[in-house]
Structure formats: C-alpha cells, structure tokens
Amino acid sequence: MSRTMAEAQLPKRVDAVKLVDNNQQLNADIDSKNLTRLLDAVVHCNEPVHCEIQFERDQDKNRLLTGSCNTNVVMICQRCLGEVSLPVTSRFQLGLVFDDDQARQLPKRLEPVELDENGQLDLWVVMEDEVLLALPAFPMHTNGECQLEQTEPEPDYTDSDEKRPNPFDVLAKLKQK
C-alpha cells in the first residue's frame, strides 16, 4: 500500500531505509536559495525545485529512489551572451546503497547513492545533483529569439580582375641580385 506525504518543503534529511520499507512517496519543493551549488552554476534561480519522488524496491529487492525534479533557471545564452530562461527537468532512478560493494552489485541502469551508516539520506544534495546534471552544457535561446542581431556574414571573395601583389616578388628580386 502506497502512502503520500505532501509537504510544502521537502525534508533535508530522511531515513531512506524506513521510507523504502513503507513505499513512501514525497511530493514537495526545495527552496532554491538553499541550493548553493545550483546558484553558483546559473545566473539565478528564483523558483523552487519541485520534487516528486518514490522510495521503493525493485523486483530484485534493490532499494530505489525514483522520480523527477524540475525548476526554471536563468543562464547565459552561448549564442548572444544575453540571459535566457530555461526549464530544467530531471527524471531519475537511483539505487540506495550503504557501501561500494553494494554499489558494484547494482544493475548498470541504476546510479548508486550512498546512505550513511544509519540509513539517512540528504535529499537536498541528491535533488541538487539531479538538477545540476540536467542543466544544458550550451544554453541558448531558441532560434530567432537571441537578443543579438545576427547579420549575414560578408562573402569572402576576391575580384579576379584585381591584381594582388605577390609577397614573394621581393624575395625573387633579392635572389636575382
């Protein structure tokens, strides 16, 4: 039986083992002001990070953290160098483990996340990691929306009638002397 816990604010630390055992769902936000690594990676993020997560076990009894998180960020457009507002969404399925041995035994489809010795998990760090991984490497406005007026490049051509001086003519004259 699945239960839902709806809170305005996602708890920072949780007992992940207990949440997995209860097949717990969390639907909540993280105030983006608390995510300093995210704030360092973008111009600004004034919206909360909305998280919908499920603690569960798969058919092989692996502890899983499955779900999605999303927000909107402002980054620098790599085309016009102006600010661009971008939606960021991450969908994930993570394997919850206690040590490297358990991490190695996870199926390849699962990225391991290590719990502390008491089964505690810092949810804010995990969700911040997911948002950071979902940021575009080259943020850009959609075509036609850049602030920079793009002019057509001038054609690179030479007039065949125009005789250009050969820079090696000087060397040829020196060689004749």
Rank of each mutant, 00 (worst) to 15 (best):
S32P: 11
F168G: 01
G95C: 08
P87G: 03
T158Y: 12
A8N: 14
Q93T: 15
F92P: 02
E52A: 14
G82S: 14
R3P: 06
P153L: 10
I30D: 05
R164W: 12
D129T: 00
E52F: 13
V42Q: 01
L19Q: 12
Q102A: 12
T36K: 12
D169R: 08
Q24V: 12
G82V: 02
D99W: 08
D101P: 01
M75F: 09
E114T: 11
A41E: 06
E162A: 08
L94E: 08
E128N: 03
A103D: 06
F138R: 13
E117A: 11
D31F: 05
N62L: 03
H44R: 15
S85I: 01
G144Q: 00
W124S: 09
E154M: 09
A8E: 15
L35P: 10
D29M: 10
E152R: 03
N166E: 06
E111L: 11
D29E: 13
P87M: 02
V49I: 10
M5K: 14
S85G: 04
Y157R: 13
P155A: 10
T142Q: 11
L135G: 02
M140V: 11
N62T: 02
V131H: 08
N70P: 02
M140I: 07
L39Y: 08
V97E: 03
A137K: 11
N27D: 15
Q9V: 14
V84A: 02
Q176F: 00
A8F: 09
I53K: 13
A172D: 09
K173I: 00
T4Q: 14
N118K: 15
P153C: 07
K108P: 10
Q54M: 12
D100N: 14
K18C: 09
A16I: 08
V20F: 03
L148M: 09
Q78D: 05
L10G: 08
P11M: 05
V14C: 05
N118R: 14
V43K: 07
P139D: 01
V84N: 04
P87K: 07
E145W: 03
P11T: 02
P155V: 09
K18W: 11
Q54R: 15
D31W: 08
Q102W: 02
V113Y: 00
F138H: 14
A134C: 06
C146S: 00
Q150H: 09
L94G: 07
E56F: 11
V43F: 07
P112I: 08
S160C: 04
L35A: 10
L39A: 12
L64G: 00
T36I: 03
V170G: 02
Q24W: 11
W124I: 04
Y157H: 11
A41T: 08
P165N: 09
P165V: 11
P11Q: 05
D156Y: 05
D161N: 07
P153I: 07
S68R: 14
E154W: 02
P112Y: 11
L38W: 04
G144E: 00
S32I: 10
V126D: 01
K61M: 14
D21F: 02
A8L: 14
V17Y: 06
S2T: 15
L148C: 04
K108A: 14
D40W: 00
P139H: 03
A41P: 01
W124R: 10
Q147H: 13
M127H: 04
D60V: 07
L86R: 05
N27Y: 12
S90Y: 04
S68A: 12
Q120C: 07
C51E: 06
L121S: 00
C146G: 07
Q93P: 07
S32N: 10
V17W: 10
T36Y: 06
P139F: 05
F92Y: 10
D60R: 15
E162C: 06
